[in-house]
Nucleic acid binder design. Sequence first.
RNA 1: AGGACCGUAGCUCAGUUGGUUAGAGCACCACCUUGACAUGGUGGGGGUCAGCGGUUCGAGUCCGCUCGGUCCUACCA
Length: 924
Amino acid sequence: MSTDTTYQPAAIEQTWYKHWESQGYFAPSHTGDPYCIMIPPPNVTGSLHMGHGFNNAVMDALIRLKRMQGHNTLWQVGTDHAGIATQMVVERQLAAKNISRHDLGREAFLEKVWEWKAESGGAITQQLRRLGSSVDWSRERFTMDDGFYKAVQEVFIRLHEDGLIYRGKRLVNWDPKLHTAISDLEVESTEEQGSLWHFRYPLTDGSGFLVVATTRPETMLGDTAVAVSPADERYAHLIGKTIKLPLVGREIPIIADDCVDKDFGTGCVKITPAHDFNDYEMGQRHQLPMINIFDKNAHLNEAVPQVYQGLERFAARKQIVADLDALGFLEKIEPHQLKVPRGDRSGVVIEPYLTDQWYVRTAPLAEQAIAAVENGNIQFVPKQYENMYFSWMRDIQDWCISRQLWWGHRIPAWYDPEGKPYVGRDEASIRKTHNLPDNLPLTQDEDVLDTWFSSGLWTFGTLGWPEQTRELAAFHPTSVLVTGFDIIFFWVARMIMLTLHFQKEVPFKTVYVHGLVRDGQGQKMSKSKGNVLDPIDLIDGIDIETLVQKRTSGLMQPKYAEKIEKATRKEFPNGIAAYGTDALRFTFYSLASTGRDINFDVGRIEGYRNFCNKLWNAANYVLMNTQEQDCGQDGSNNYTLGLAERWIVSQLQQTETQILDYMAQLRLDLASQTLYDFVWKDYCDWYIELSKPVLWDDNASAELKKGTRRTLIRVLETILRLAHPFMPFITEEIWHKVKDLAGKTGATIMLAPYPAPDESKIDAKAVADVEWVKGIVTAIRTIRGEMNVPPSKKIAVFISGGSAATQLQVNENSTFLKKLASLESIDYLHSDTDAPLSATALFGEVKILVPMAGIIDKQAELSRLEREIDKLKKEVERVQGKLNNPAFTDKAPADVVQKEQDKLTGYAQAISQLTEQQGKIAAL
RNA sequence: AGGACCGUAGCUCAGUUGGUUAGAGCACCACCUUGACAUGGUGGGGGUCAGCGGUUCGAGUCCGCUCGGUCCUACCA
């Protein structure tokens, strides 16, 4: 062991990772029960954020645990081509050089994207390595790999054959900036302030006008009806008549429809079937014409009067309002709050737009997907997310899967000159299947598939499907999916639907759903807020100047730079220290309670870095006392286990049981907390301290010393294996220094067996005895602490009272007691009448006497006793109240009543003893 | 509009089926460089468990309402 007394994570972490990877330790063992996790594929060109950090820390703990337990583990990694996101990044780079993708053309543009992928695609996988993620790199996948594309193509073709994919001209969510359709899920509606315009629409017969209220004046050019409620008497006489649409001059009918709310606005609605989802449906019901008035940029097209053609939609709005006003058709404008649909990527207002797209018919798929969760084949943790899943699934809409992008899986469909689509693997096979003559020109669909269509196949598509491979048989269904709630619909739900349909089994048995990683104040981390933490910076540390630079450069709104800089300098005056991966991971685990967002408090990572340091130094102590010494590993039984040894071994079994239990429940917070408490409190604070008086005692027997060394090293070695899934690096580093002394062999702790509790080692007597020692020691320390008696001042202590065994306990444990409480002597008094005047503490029935002479102030002790007595009196009052209540004594279970009764007796006794003591001191 | 979750110490969080004096880490106060560790040790202070009502012998825990916060879904032009 090095002589370093402080833990230096940078010195060990990367070396070990490289070693593990090069040795192939991450790959499946091909023995034992399979256990498989598929990584939620991050965007190939992305970089690691705190969400990835958390997510991967959780997966790695699970996989390392199972691997150590002897399972055949596969943690498969891969990245996603992320259609829109990646294309946008490359387009932005081109835009900086004033080039559009259309200038390049499809092929050249795609080349640029592949170049960008080659350039930046390794970043995130390198960062995953920094986290210690033990993924099987040999099976790394990319969603645009040839093999995966085969699966995507196959799925599309088969769904089409099954009648579950169709092409249709319908209203879609159109993004006028990105020039593509997007799915419902990619639309975010935001509450915005707008207006409600009231327009007069004149009746054709000249008998007056109707007033319609609208939030989108510009669409009036595409109106093909005005609707009223059939229950609205005000307009009943007008139904069937027509109005003459201002500015356009078109004659359009007045219709009645139940969907109209007569109490909203004027009770009259203008109907634009080609540009509003509700109007579209109404148009279908009433066979209204659909007039598309926009082009793909959401500029007015040739379907509108010449003067408006080419106008951008919001410019058109202004113009139309002005024109209607000039003609006397504008009645009023009211301020109005409305939900505006915006594209989640582009941020622009989404336009309902009539286009031809490919759709997945989801209802039949959803049916099975609902059943799989209902019958428990898939379980969500925490369970509440099942409701969210059900409510969405039960009301699912068909899924628009075509995107007018270039980067993605090209749709395997070809069109003949009439526009008739044929779906198949390639042109040749389509000609063959459909008997098409060679001279009939076919052109492939220009569109690509929604990224989520391909990621929906992730669990089985990456295992070789449609081939029935060995891996598919072994690892599918996968064991657990670890993912954020934000992609339950995008990804989880679709994986379930597609996998059930094709693989006839669930994609995973458990879905562990976690929240968003936020900053310490619960704010969402974002570049614009300047509160982003980079996991790598927490691992390696970062100086304040670099951090400020990082947070303030490349802002969308540079005006916030100053504010961000100020806040950053205030929060991190000295930058961020290098905490190391193990500490970062442990922090994630400690915050991994289920069902809520994770507020990442930087204060906590420091605490867990200290925990690593604690473990490091505990190992240091153990090695100092065991190296080159007989640690009782020769197979003979010539060693003795003392009370402390039996106790720590017993506690260890309990700890192992609990950790395994919590891991099974996916409560990594409780598991890590249990480990923390055992290592710090039981092992370091008590066991190591209890070992000192034995190892340093010349009178202690060789057998007892050997038993102590044996226990120190073996418990430490077990702690390392227990902790390894959580803190892989530090445990591996120490393990290699410890394993021989502990009688263990093996090339790596990664593949050493995970500790399993042995009930025969649970020793209730030892636990009770050590609790007694701890109680006495703590009582003495409390007096010392409150009376400011430093440990360097050795004191004499007397014990009295207690049971018949007390004297024996005092004698047997006097070495422990003297060392731990820093005593000169400890003696049992059969009667305390002849005891010197003492400060007194009670531990159960045992009385602890610390002679005051020369060390304790009379007044201080009197007021200390006063506080103690007051506290006890309050308790007596409370308990007495309970016991005096017949309702309680009659109805509560007997053992509960007895417990209260015992408490009362104990308190009363304590009060009388302390009061007596108070009297003695006061009389002095 | 419907639904979910949350509100516990100054901060970030635990608190299993209701039952000791509600816990941890950080922060705070005091003492201590004791032969693993000052990234440490020992002791201490600090909470009307958001509020109100109910069920119960007993509620942080179960039920209802109110307030505050976060989010999801569906929407009225």
